[in-house]
Design a binder for these strands. Structure first.
Lengths: 350, 350
DNA sequence: CCAATATACTGAAACGTTACAGATTGCCAT
DNA sequence: ATGGCAATCTGTAACGTTTCAGTATATTGG
């Protein structure tokens, strides 16, 4: 009588997307009860709960994300923040797949938030936090003193970094052990009689730059090899830059007889530069290179290879962020991935 | 008196995120007026409009996405649907960057919706449409008769396909002219005296498979070259598969003296297989390969290369989807990217 | 001076959800 | 019978936005 009984769900129930109201009408319960029944609240009778959940499944009820988000502030979104110019190619696809693998059977969506070289890396993070666009954030290109990590810690938004920081602050991360990588690489080269080694470093300023450099120089000292400085380039440079600098270096008589390279694409340039100088890989010089996709051995079988799994990184980072959101201690959500053995392909004697 | 005057925005205005209510309080106007002033509605006085917009900018007002989405149904989300196993690596990163480039100064966010080999490709699309999770969708791995395109057309949700369909239905797409690519490739090989050609095809079933094959066979007929069947593999196969099959093929005496390859990674395998068989690139056989990242010439300078720009594809697809959302005619949002010239690196005489 | 009309603004309702503060029922101890 | 209490359910309000149906004020025409 008092309430007008043309409530839209009575007739069009099959056409419109079902809401809690639809379920309430169908079960004869109140909207509140339905809501609580669906999330297994304790004060709902066991049979009612089962009944509601059955009907919900039958008609394919899916909570409206906007409704939940507006009411609770929970976005059910994880954001992956990427540099659109300097990120390694395979890194992007693999890490995305790693992340999606983990969030696949959760209500989470993955959004990609880009920033360009010219921008302050803090910009996208600030945007995400200020607009409340994500429940958790994943960042890469982590620096020892990382303003983004500091900012998010201050604001209390869960995040995980690809690479560690060094600020005395605790937060989730996943990292590849680049110290161990460089160490192993040097020992491998030394084992092949190489004694004058150069390092093609990660981008200066990122944490894993110093990890790699430290592993390199420590191992050099330990095996009694010497370093040939190669500081004018890093894997962030263009292929042409690296190639040119390498060729320059290799034409000097104090040239290295071994390289450690931190990225596959840079290794292509390295090899090109070496060959530009008329030298031959495997004879005049050996290279140990990291790679993330399994293609480098096709390029030159003489290359010595260590694999870094970015898909795993993506999964670990996603797990870490979800863990933090779920209330786990940030300190318990840190993982370090150890490099495997250096792989030599034809196993030909040096 | 009647209304309790502790409205939260009066005191904490600087702390909480500003809403229309905050703006209304600050300007002394009603919420409705503020809302309309911000979107340049005609019935708002010019001065009021300016005043509201000024205050909004000053305090950094950003509309609450959940509020808008709940009220209007507009998500301001574009979804990129990707196969997590078969997508080309550089495709993923480049297309994402292309998309983000276009949506950067719009309110749109990009979400990545994955599906795996085992899943029906329609699943993720159905999910997006049923849950209303995106205003527009971008799909790849397009088929001549594509159920996803058909489904989205039925449901009236804007989308764009990477690659064309062939269903007599009109929708936005971006495609690379693979017919022209194969045609050019064949002519280039013929120009180098190669007369027995094999094609490493795109995945069977995708539209660009037949485009490529057609371009290939038409050009073969035209230049009077013959085809060496190589149907047991496609670029979707594993590197090892392709390498093995290629080696098998190249050990036969009716082996090809030229290849056209539809993807860079596959080309690496192709070359490896050729060399496994003891043959030499440039001498015994030439290869024209597509690539999307600029690295193939470092691999073997003898490779003949045609570039396909996935970043451009991403931008075009994003533009197309946004255009459709914005009311433009789907038929006007189709673009075809022509291959550039075949690039030969050292320009050494064959 | 009145009515009609244009201009500039406003409150209430609704989108779908959850939290809060009840309301109803049955049961038990007193 | 009565009060107390647990178990189970419910209505209302609120999140921030836009739309609808107005209201107030000034302006115009007669």
């Amino acid at each position: 009588m008092d309430r007008q009984r043309t409530e839209k769900n009575e007739d069009a129930s099959a056409l419109e997307r079902p809401t809690l109201k639809t379920l309430a009408f169908m079960t004869g319960l109140g909207v509140t009860t339905v809501s609580r029944a669906l999330k297994d609240a304790p004060e709902i009778g066991a049979e009612t709960r089962r009944r509601v959940q059955l009907v919900a499944k039958q008609i394919g009820y899916r909570p409206n994300r906007a409704g939940v988000r507006l009411r609770t502030g929970k976005t059910n979104v994880i954001s992956l923040v990427l540099n659109t110019e300097q990120e390694i190619m395979s890194f992007v696809s693999d890490i995305i797949y790693g992340v999606t693998e983990v969030i696949a059977d959760t209500p989470y969506h993955l959004i990609v938030t880009p920033y360009s070289r010219s921008q302050d890396p803090l910009d996208p993070v600030r945007y995400l936090v200020e607009t409340g666009s994500a429940d958790g954030v994943i960042i890469s290109r982590t620096q020892p003193n990382d303003p983004r990590a500091r900012y998010m810690l201050e604001r209390g938004i869960p995040f995980a970094t690809h690479g560690r920081t060094d600020m005395g602050l605790v937060h989730p991360y996943h990292d590849f052990d680049n110290y161990a990588f460089a160490d192993e690489a040097v020992r491998c080269l030394a084992g092949r009689g190489r004694g004058r080694l150069a390092l093609l470093t990660p981008p200066v300023g990122l944490t894993y730059h110093s990890h790699t450099v430290n592993g390199f120089v420590d191992a050099l000292a330990d095996v009694g090899a010497s370093e040939v400085p190669f500081n004018t380039v890093s894997i962030d440079q263009s292929i042409d830059q690296i190639r040119m600098r390498t060729a320059q270096l290799m034409r000097r008589k104090d040239r290295p007889d071994g390289f450690v390279s931190s990225a596959a694409a840079a290794t292509l340039a390295l090899v090109a530069g070496i060959e530009d100088a008329g030298l031959k890989l495997g004879r005049d010089v050996d290279i140990v290179s990291k790679q993330s996709s399994d293609l480098l051995h096709l390029f030159r079988p003489e290359l010595l290879i260590v694999n870094e799994n970015f898909r795993l990184a993506g999964s670990e980072l996603a797990r870490a962020v979800l863990g933090w959101i779920g209330g786990e201690a940030p300190g318990s959500l840190q993982s370090l991935s150890k490099p495997g053995q250096v792989l030599a392909y034809p196993r030909s004697g040096g």
